[in-house]
């Protein structure tokens, strides 16, 4: 993609991408790194065809960058973070229940397979209904439910059954 188009995309969606990265990673410097990585990929995208849904496309790239960062352990581990949540600590970052919830979900998602992650991101991070997720992913609602159940199993294994319901709280 040429620089002029990338610039236009940044002006329109750069803030949205940065905001998403910040929600997933919770650290401003890490979100800056992720924003940089996302737009490097945008500049390398050389298809002549226009991107049909730019925001969805950018979010997909951003998610990948953030989950890779979380997987590489550059961020807090799930166990550490969970302990902090229980103690009410905030690691110097502004901490709200919604922000904690999103970060917790993000850390769990980083440990999931792509199939589960794609569905769980749209449901837990983007707040879509199961039907909306099914349409966005291109599968049946039954498949969405199955993958969400697999995600909750994963969450229960990591957090304990009693805390799985926390994941559902609204973050709007």
């Amino acid at each position: 993609m040429d620089a002029a188009l990338a610039k236009e995309m940044y002006q329109r969606y750069g803030y949205a991408v940065h905001r998403r990265c910040l929600r997933l990673l919770r650290e401003s410097a890490a979100a800056d790194d992720a924003l940089h990585d996302v737009f490097i990929k945008v500049l390398r995208y050389r298809s002549a065809a226009p991107v049909e849904h730019p925001l969805a496309w950018l979010y997909t790239i951003a998610d990948r960058c953030c989950f890779d960062a979380l997987k590489k352990g550059r961020r807090l581990t799930l166990v550490d973070r969970t302990e902090q949540l229980e103690c009410g600590e905030s690691n110097g970052q502004s901490s709200t229940p919604a922000a904690d919830r999103v970060h917790l979900v993000a850390q769990l998602l980083a440990r999931c397979s792509d199939r589960i992650r794609r569905v769980a991101v749209l449901y837990y991070i983007d707040g879509m209904t199961q039907q909306e997720v099914a349409e966005a992913v291109g599968c049946s609602r039954k498949t969405v439910k199955k993958r969400l159940a697999a995600f909750r199993d994963k969450a229960a294994a990591n957090l304990g059954e009693s805390r799985v319901e926390e994941l559902n709280h609204e973050s709007h």
């Binding site: 990929k41 995208y45 298809s47 065809a49 991107v51 049909e52 849904h53 969805a56 496309w57 997909t60 790239i61 998610d63 990948r64 794609r118 992913v137 291109g138």
Partner: peptide
């Protein structure tokens, strides 16, 4: 195919 590529974030 283009949609699938976009959904995959170009990967």
């Amino acid at each position: 195919v283009t949609r699938a590529f976009d959904r995959a974030g170009g990967e």
